[in-house]
Structures are given as structure tokens and as C-alpha cells.
């Protein structure tokens, strides 16, 4: 079975496009819009929520949306990895940090930072505007679909052409583990 075709559209591959015509495309489009909205809403919660635990929740929602976006970008593998690593690990780790350190944003006294007010919004808005307009202005040469989302291909490339990346990742992770152990351990050294 041609897996690429099977999953080329539709979140979670519920609908198959293989020679189906309009309806599947429309459904895929609708779901894509939903996922787009999910991503953006999640992102808004993530940077805007007053309580950090809500922010993490928003981040998780955003990442679920991003996973769906990856799906539309023909990489179900990455979509699943996104869920597994970001939602299942990173978000939980951050939640843990919140749980252990109990930071309360709104309890803080004193004037808020200059950047957090309208100034920050303007800055961020300008960045967004610049990037969006740049993206829309630029003419990209659209190539035919090349991203096949084939896991085997990724695997073999990762270990041949891009083996440097693989090694780097492993070293980074190793260092991260050791580093976090060292840092986290310190408090208990008594």
C-alpha cells in the first residue's frame, strides 16, 4: 500500500484522498483550518495566560496543532514525534518545574517590565508583520512534492548523509542529561 498517498491529507488520515475528488479535499481543508486555529489559540494562551500552568496547557494545545501541521506537511513521523516529545515530555517537564518551584506571575510587586506592555506588543507585532510581509512578498519556486514522509528514508539519511546531526543530537542529549543531573543534584548534596 502506498502509505504516502494514504496519509497525504486529512488529520490522522481519517479520510483518504486517493482518487476521491472534491469532498476529501474539502474535509482536509476544514480540518486544516481547525488545526491552524488550534495552533494559534494554543500559542495565544501560551504567551498570554496569567497562570503558568495554563500557559503550559496552551503550549500543549499549540503543539498538538503543530503536530497536525506536520501531518499536512507530509511527515506523520514528525507529527507523532512532536506529540511524543513535546506534549508527552517537554510540556510535562515544564509542568513539573511549575509544580516544584511554584512561580506565581501575578503575585509579583513592582512595576512590570517596559517590554511587557504595549511596547512589547508593538515590537512583536512589527516582527510578525515584517516576517509575514517578507514571506508573502518573496517568490518561492515551488517544487513538486518531494517530502515523502518516509521514515525509512529519514532513518537511512540520518545515519549516512546527516550522521553528523545524529551524533550532535546524541551528544547534546547526553550533555543535557548530565548537566541537568549535576544542577538538580546540587541541592541535595548535604
Amino acid at each position: 500500500m502506498n502509505t504516502t498517498d494514504q496519509i497525504s491529507s486529512g488529520i490522522l488520515g481519517i479520510l483518504t484522498t486517493d482518487g476521491l475528488g472534491g469532498f476529501a479535499d474539502e474535509a482536509a481543508g476544514i480540518i486544516f483550518l481547525m488545526m491552524l486555529a488550534t495552533t494559534l489559540i494554543g500559542g495565544i494562551i501560551a504567551f498570554n495566560a496569567r497562570q503558568l500552568i495554563h500557559a503550559v496547557q496552551g503550549l500543549a494545545v499549540c503543539f498538538i496543532g503543530v503536530a497536525a501541521i506536520y501531518y499536512y506537511l507530509n511527515s506523520p513521523f514528525l507529527a507523532m514525534m512532536q506529540m511524543l516529545i513535546y506534549v508527552g515530555a517537554v510540556c510535562i517537564t515544564i509542568s513539573f518545574a511549575i509544580l516544584l518551584a511554584a512561580p506565581e506571575e501575578d503575585k509579583k510587586q513592582g512595576p512590570p517590565s517596559v517590554l511587557s506592555g504595549p511596547f512589547g506588543i508593538i515590537t512583536a507585532g512589527m516582527i510578525a508583520f515584517a516576517m509575514v510581509s517578507l514571506a508573502l512578498k518573496t517568490e518561492f519556486t515551488i517544487m513538486p512534492k518531494v517530502n515523502m514522509g518516509d521514515m525509512k528514508l529519514i532513518g537511512s539519511k540520518l545515519l549516512t548523509t546527516y550522521s553528523m546531526v545524529f551524533e550532535l543530537v546524541s551528544i547534546v542529549l547526553l550533555i543535557a542529561i548530565i548537566g541537568s543531573l549535576v544542577i538538580g543534584r546540587k541541592g541535595r548534596s548535604k
Binding site: 494514504q6 490522522l12 513521523f77 507523532m80 508527552g88 509542568s95 521514515m151
Partner: peptide
Amino acid sequence: AHSMNIGVLMIFAFASLGSFAILL
């Protein structure tokens, strides 16, 4: 229902949401 070529990974990805639910 839908045979995916990364089925195993998908089950694990969704299962990881379970622990998030418990945490929340």
C-alpha cells in the same frame, strides 16, 4: 479503521497525553 505506517508511534504519542491528563 486506518492502517498507518507509524501505528506504534501513534499509540505511544497518544498514550503520552494520558499522563498529561493525570497531571492536569
